[in-house]
C-alpha cells in the first residue's frame, strides 16, 4: 500500500462523512463545514488515487488547486447567505419546508 492509496482511502471516508453531514445536519454553519470536509475528501481521492504508484502527477494537483479556490468561493457565498438569513429571520437553520 502506498502513501497515495492511504490518503485516497482517507479521502473516501472524509467524503462520506461530509456527505452524511451535509444531508443530516441542520445548523447552516456546520453544514458548510461538512461540505468543506466532503470537498477535501474528493481532492484527496483525486491526487491520492492518481499518485498511488508513487510518482507526483502535476495534472490532478493543478485540478485540486482549482478546486480549493472554487471551494473557498462557494464557502464564502454560503456564509454570506447564512449570515443574511440569520440577520433577516434570526434562524440558523433552513426550515424543513418553506415553500410559503
Amino acid at each position: 500500500m502506498s502513501g497515495g492509496m492511504i490518503f485516497a482511502g482517507a479521502g473516501a471516508v472524509l467524503f462520506t462523512m461530509g456527505l452524511v453531514g451535509v444531508v443530516l445536519i441542520g445548523p447552516l454553519l456546520r453544514r458548510i463545514l461538512a461540505f468543506n470536509v466532503m470537498g477535501s475528501g474528493a481532492f484527496l481521492v483525486l491526487v491520492g488515487l492518481a499518485q498511488r504508484d508513487g510518482g507526483a502527477d502535476p495534472v490532478p494537483q493543478a485540478m485540486v488547486l482549482t478546486g480549493i479556490v472554487v471551494a473557498v468561493a462557494s464557502t464564502a457565498l454560503a456564509l454570506a447567505l447564512a449570515r443574511r438569513l440569520h440577520r433577516l429571520t434570526g434562524r440558523t437553520t433552513l426550515s424543513a419546508t418553506d415553500d410559503d
Binding site: L19, G41, V45
Partner: peptide, 24 residues
C-alpha cells in the same frame, strides 16, 4: 438560494469525486 446552493455544491462535489475516480 441557500437551499439551492447546498444542492448545487453537493452535486458538484459528488460529480468531482466521480471525476477523481475516473482519472484514477
Amino acid at each position: 438560494a441557500l437551499r439551492y446552493l447546498f444542492a448545487a455544491l453537493v452535486g458538484s462535489v459528488m460529480y468531482l469525486l466521480g471525476v477523481a475516480l475516473i482519472y484514477g
